[in-house]
Amino acid sequence: MDPILFERYPYWIAILLMMIGFYTLISRGNLIKQVVGLNIFQTSVFILYIGLGNVEGGAAPILRAGTDVYSNPLPHVLILTSIVVGIATTALALGLVVRIREAYGSIEEDEIRAKDADG
């Protein structure tokens, strides 16, 4: 069995999610769907980090009697921070979408562009 293919499956999942998110982001004209794509894209990176921090046979990094090998806790901490940043971004993006809908009456990119062209 090729170890690249199976043993490192978290990376493949991360890459797959990244592609899905990115594709959604660039192919959709609906602003909400774009935000969803952006979220998937960001989440894929979180998984990548968690995958990186995994130590073979390691337990969750919580001090406990009888465990010697732990996964690296630092990526978890970093990702906690990234999640916070991600939430802030999503919240702001959604907020903007609400305001855009109020101002334009639409959340479709092409309709917004058409309304801007009208003035």
């Binding site: 990115f22 982001l25 602003l31 774009q34 952006l38 894209f41 960001q42 940043v85 971004t89 702001l92 993006a93 903007l96 979408v97 305001r99 855009i100 101002a103 334009y104 917004i112 801007d116």
Partner: peptide, 18 residues
């Protein structure tokens, strides 16, 4: 209202960059 769309575009691209 154009500022909203500009900010949104800026957010999407900026977040991809980040």
């Amino acid at each position: 209202r154009r500022a909203l769309v500009s900010a949104y575009q800026y957010l999407i691209l900026g977040t991809i960059g980040a």
